[in-house]
Simulated scan of single mutants.
Amino acid sequence: MSSSSNNYSWKNFDCAYQFYPSQHQQSENLALLLIHPIGVGLSGVFWQRFISAWQQQEQSYSIYNPDLLGCGKSEMPHLAYFPEDWAAQLKYFLETVVKQPVVLVVQGALFPVALELVNDPMQPNYIKGLVLSGPPAWKIMTEAGKPLQQKILWNLLFDSPVGNLFYRYARRRKFLQSFSTRQLFAEAEAVDPNWLDFLQAGAKNLDSRYAVFSFLASFWRKDYTKKIQSISQPTLVVFGNEASSISREGLAETPQQRLDLYLNNLPSGQGKIIPGRNVLPYESTKEFVAVVKDFVRQLSILI
């Protein structure tokens, strides 16, 4: 798996990414830009299993795998992070580093980051398609959060000594295994040592808690209905057949109902349900690669 680790500066912050070049000598017309989830220990490392499987099957497309600010090998400033912040980082990354058409491949609740990026009126026409891996339940994506409650959670709980202690507890291997089994994976045995090892390694730096707590404070919660309905690019939505929701608002939706709600609101959407639950690129890698590969090949013919 040929790759290079690189850095760039955005707003005086040091940001990291990995680049996996196409194995074909001719220049391809599309690349993949991966957007990793936010969570204890999560970063671009989340995509390593997907990238390995992808390169075994498909060598015509380069892959860009950035660490979002506050995660992985990128700088971790003491900030409350909003989707607009990460979207601005990725916009700069597209314009100054990638500089070619891409398909955004987005995991889970980072869909709002992709929405802010795609709906930016100043965004150059680099984004040719989107793949949404297990996006949040429709009700979660279309009901705004409560700013006062978010601010209270951040100031009194997360950005406090209590939050520091909680993060130390949450990064313990036993907690990570229990949470992953209860909320993320369809099968308990799929929560393997590799998964737990990279979560623990990623959470070793306590400054990684600010990105995680920004997510837990729900700074990403808005009514995104209009922005979703404004996506003009072809969009593939992929759910696991055992997809669940961490939030109570999404518990009533079956995977098929959730998929139908998205497809009814995406101007150019298509959908797939594959085996798995909520972290499909990791737990159902073979099936996820197959549906993404078909989608990207379709796009490359159209552009």
Rank of each mutant, 00 (worst) to 15 (best):
L79F: 08
K146D: 15
G39H: 10
P193A: 00
V162K: 13
L33S: 00
A88P: 03
S4R: 15
N194K: 11
K73I: 10
V45M: 03
A203F: 14
Q177W: 04
Q18T: 12
M1F: 12
T142E: 10
L165N: 03
S62D: 10
L30Y: 01
Y64S: 10
D192L: 09
S3Y: 13
S300C: 02
E189Q: 05
V162Y: 04
A186M: 15
R168S: 12
S60W: 12
L176Y: 06
V113Q: 06
E242T: 10
E95G: 01
L236N: 14
S74I: 09
G72L: 08
F50R: 03
V296F: 13
I301K: 15
F50M: 02
V106T: 14
A31G: 11
F166P: 00
L176K: 08
R221H: 09
L34S: 07
A217Q: 03
V191D: 04
G271H: 04
E58V: 07
F50L: 02
A144G: 11
L34V: 08
M1G: 02
A88G: 12
F93W: 13
S214W: 02
G134F: 00
Y224E: 04
N205Y: 14
E249H: 13
G240F: 00
E28W: 08
N194P: 05
Q55H: 11
Q23N: 15
L68W: 05
P124Y: 09
R172Y: 09
G108P: 03
V113Y: 07
Q298D: 13
Y17P: 06
A16E: 01
L148P: 05
Q149Y: 07
P234K: 13
A252R: 13
I152H: 12
